[in-house]
């Protein structure tokens, strides 16, 4: 069964894209394909001009760590770790920075999402909105080329939704990163630079 048919999508740095559409239209499938979490049966995916769709699992995983940041609807923090440790997690794997620099960057990122005072709190000691802000800081940790967000505000109240969306877009724009987010929220979609509605596996 083909979930996506003839879909072509390009994201530019510094731009925020919203993919909208009814449930089951293929929004999340497209996002996971772009994020190299799924492998397409056909078609091509390029990141920074490098074709990734046909690479093996190890190369795709390495590309995820280096070029892609994810923000999911249900925060997906690792709850046994502090906010600081969660943000340092992708940096530790990439190993590009020395430990002290990783720590400094994690502190800076948490400061920028307004959680500088809660760096040593465990995931369980943070509210939903705070957890999502930590997730955004974590997604930005390795300075990815693209941020992929699957319903990042879907589980938050209006105030926290706006806060998280503002953070996501501001930080991405500041760092020259492309943001692609899937949302059902028309207000959020309206505030994006580009909105791509989908229906039955096609861009409308």
């Amino acid at each position: 069964m083909h979930v996506l048919k003839g879909v072509s999508f390009e994201a530019q740095r510094g731009q925020v894209y919203a993919i909208v559409g009814p449930s089951g239209c293929g929004k999340s499938t497209l996002l996971y394909l772009l994020g190299l979490l799924d492998r397409p049966d056909e078609g091509e995916i390029e990141i920074n001009g490098r074709r990734m769709s046909n690479h093996d699992d190890a190369a795709r995983t390495a590309a995820r760590g280096e070029h892609i940041g994810f923000v999911f609807q249900f925060h997906f923090l690792m709850l046994e770790f502090t906010a600081l440790e969660n943000v340092m997690m992708p940096m530790r794997k990439l190993g590009r920075l020395p430990p002290a620099a990783m720590r400094d960057r994690a502190h800076a990122l948490l400061d920028s999402v307004g959680l500088g005072a809660k760096t040593h709190r465990l995931g369980t000691q943070l509210s939903g909105g705070e957890q999502q802000r930590v997730a955004i800081a974590r997604a930005l940790a390795n300075q990815p080329a693209i941020l992929l967000a699957d319903e990042p505000t879907g589980n938050l109240d209006v105030r926290n939704s706006n806060l998280v969306f503002d953070l996501l877009t501001r930080l991405a724009k500041d760092n020259g990163q492309a943001v692609v987010l899937v949302t059902h929220n028309p207000e959020i979609a309206q505030r994006c630079d580009v909105t791509r509605p989908m229906r039955d596996g096609l861009f409308a």
Partner: peptide
């Protein structure tokens, strides 16, 4: 499983 998914999405390999 969710933590494993997070780790994998952050660049942790299967062998990790």
């Amino acid at each position: 499983t969710k933590d494993i998914a997070i780790l994998r999405s952050m660049g942790y390999e299967r062998r990790d």
